[in-house]
């Protein structure tokens, strides 16, 4: 489907977020390699690697998720929808619109639920790690989840609008 022009700023935002997420994977690899070298040759492990990795991985995923939805790269079985596309494209488009709506609702619930966790983590000053050794606040990760889920939810809505307009267009919607 063609992208609506109004979505282009969103496209740039998601590409940007996904770029950051991808670089973060490389940074994780670099941090772990640095830890291996430091531990083996200098006798000093880097403090907090486990905490940094476990928080980064969540960030990687949610920085990425908007772009993943945008690129239709979430795993699914396309057998039925592919078959329908030629026989009754209208029904296929309607079905896709419903799936997109459920996707948008899923991410909406995440935005709602994780916002509370974000607030609590901020007010309680929640940290990962061990006091005295290495601690890192957890709220930024929750913020990334909220941001990424918001982007993914909007993207699903844009998909939904696209499918609906296809379903109700004159030609009966050729993809």
């Amino acid at each position: 489907m063609s992208e609506a022009p109004k979505a282009s700023w969103l496209g740039r935002l998601m590409a940007g977020l996904s770029g950051i997420g991808s670089v973060l994977i490389l940074a994780m690899a670099a941090l772990i390699c640095a830890d291996i070298v430091s531990r083996s040759f200098l006798g000093k492990p880097i403090a907090g690697v486990a905490e940094m990795i476990s928080l980064s991985i969540v960030a990687v995923v949610f920085l990425q998720v908007g772009q993943t939805v945008r690129a239709h790269a979430l795993a699914r079985t396309e057998l039925l929808t592919n078959g329908l596309r030629n026989r009754s494209p209208r029904i296929e488009a309607l079905l896709q619109a419903v799936y997109a709506l459920v996707g948008a609702l899923f991410f909406a619930v995440l935005v709602y639920g994780v916002s509370f966790k974000l607030r609590d983590a901020w007010t309680a000053g929640e940290h990962a790690g061990v006091y005295g050794l290495f601690v890192v606040p957890v709220w930024p990760v929750y913020a990334v989840i909220v941001l990424g889920s918001f982007a993914a939810g909007i993207q699903f809505l844009i998909h939904m609008v696209g499918y609906l307009s296809r379903a109700f267009s004159q030609e009966g919607a050729r993809p």
Binding site: G43, K44, P45, V130, G132, L133
Partner: peptide, 24 residues
């Protein structure tokens, strides 16, 4: 002193105080 000892969490603080290095 100077030894690497496995110990995660708060007990790592017990090790670092005597010159050992706590390893996760």
């Amino acid at each position: 002193k100077g030894r690497k000892i496995g110990g995660a969490g708060t007990i790592a603080n017990w090790l670092n105080g005597v010159g050992a290095t706590a390893v996760d």
